[in-house]
Amino acid sequence: MTTRLACANITSVMEDERRKQTEQKLIKSGKEEFLKKGYAKANLRDICKNAGVTTGAFYFSFENKEALLSAILAPVITDYEKMCSTFARREEEDPNTADDNERQMMEYLSEHRTEAIILMEKSAGSRYEKFRPQISQQMQAAFTSYFTKFMGSTPDAELIRILVTMRLQGYMELIKGDYTVEERVRLAREIGIHADAGTTALIKYLKEQKEVYRR
């Protein structure tokens, strides 16, 4: 009886390991397919073929194509949101942590650049297609709050939208570009310095224009 139980346990462990290996093969193949074609045009048969598994094995591991996409993106989104929350608290308590926060975020995005590109540019047709607009809205709210604080009045909403679009596009260029992690971190820091200086100059200009209109 003991021998049978031991054999059953070994078989169960081996089956779990095979299942995990199959899932990892499908996740790897799915990343390549989604990155190349986008979620909407990604072909499930091609994903299975490139992973070296049958469609039956796919459905044993994932309910559908979107479930596979979720397995790829959900962990990254969770990490990203936690990092954003942590960094926001850190910077509020100590603004000098901004550079270190920027470095950590860029290192993480560099490590998960495929997932980031899929999420931001290749997820149309899935539950994640609104993620980029949501990030944009959050950034616009943060920019508006910052400008309002230092201008003493609410900035033009269209100006803020354009500034956020430019900032997002800049970071996507870093993620998509053929750079080393060190190069991305350096460029991100330099972009940040330029953005900070530009923001300060813009706020000064807008305040001056506001005073002109008052006269």
Results as ranks from 00 to 15, higher is better:
145 S>T: 15
125 G>E: 12
124 A>P: 00
137 Q>E: 13
121 E>Y: 06
160 I>Q: 06
138 Q>P: 00
129 E>W: 01
117 I>D: 05
132 R>S: 04
163 L>D: 00
137 Q>S: 14
158 E>G: 05
142 A>R: 08
121 E>Q: 09
140 Q>G: 09
110 S>T: 15
114 T>P: 00
141 A>W: 04
142 A>C: 04
122 K>C: 13
147 F>A: 13
141 A>K: 13
144 T>C: 09
150 F>V: 11
140 Q>M: 15
146 Y>P: 01
130 K>G: 02
140 Q>I: 10
143 F>C: 05
152 G>Y: 05
120 M>S: 02
149 K>C: 04
144 T>K: 09
128 Y>A: 01
124 A>C: 03
126 S>H: 05
160 I>Y: 01
116 A>C: 08
139 M>C: 07
135 I>R: 02
117 I>A: 09
113 R>F: 10
155 P>A: 13
127 R>T: 14
141 A>Y: 08
154 T>C: 11
161 R>A: 14
109 L>V: 13
122 K>S: 07
158 E>D: 14
119 L>K: 03
137 Q>I: 10
146 Y>M: 14
131 F>T: 09
122 K>Y: 11
160 I>M: 10
128 Y>P: 01
122 K>N: 12
162 I>T: 13
124 A>W: 03
138 Q>G: 15
125 G>W: 06
145 S>G: 03
156 D>A: 09
153 S>H: 15
162 I>E: 13
136 S>T: 13
125 G>Y: 04
159 L>Y: 12
138 Q>H: 09
153 S>P: 06
130 K>E: 12
158 E>S: 12
131 F>K: 08
144 T>H: 03
128 Y>D: 00
123 S>K: 00
127 R>W: 03
151 M>A: 11
131 F>W: 15
116 A>F: 06
154 T>N: 11
122 K>A: 10
144 T>G: 03
151 M>Q: 14
154 T>L: 12
117 I>L: 13
138 Q>I: 00
164 V>I: 09
136 S>V: 06
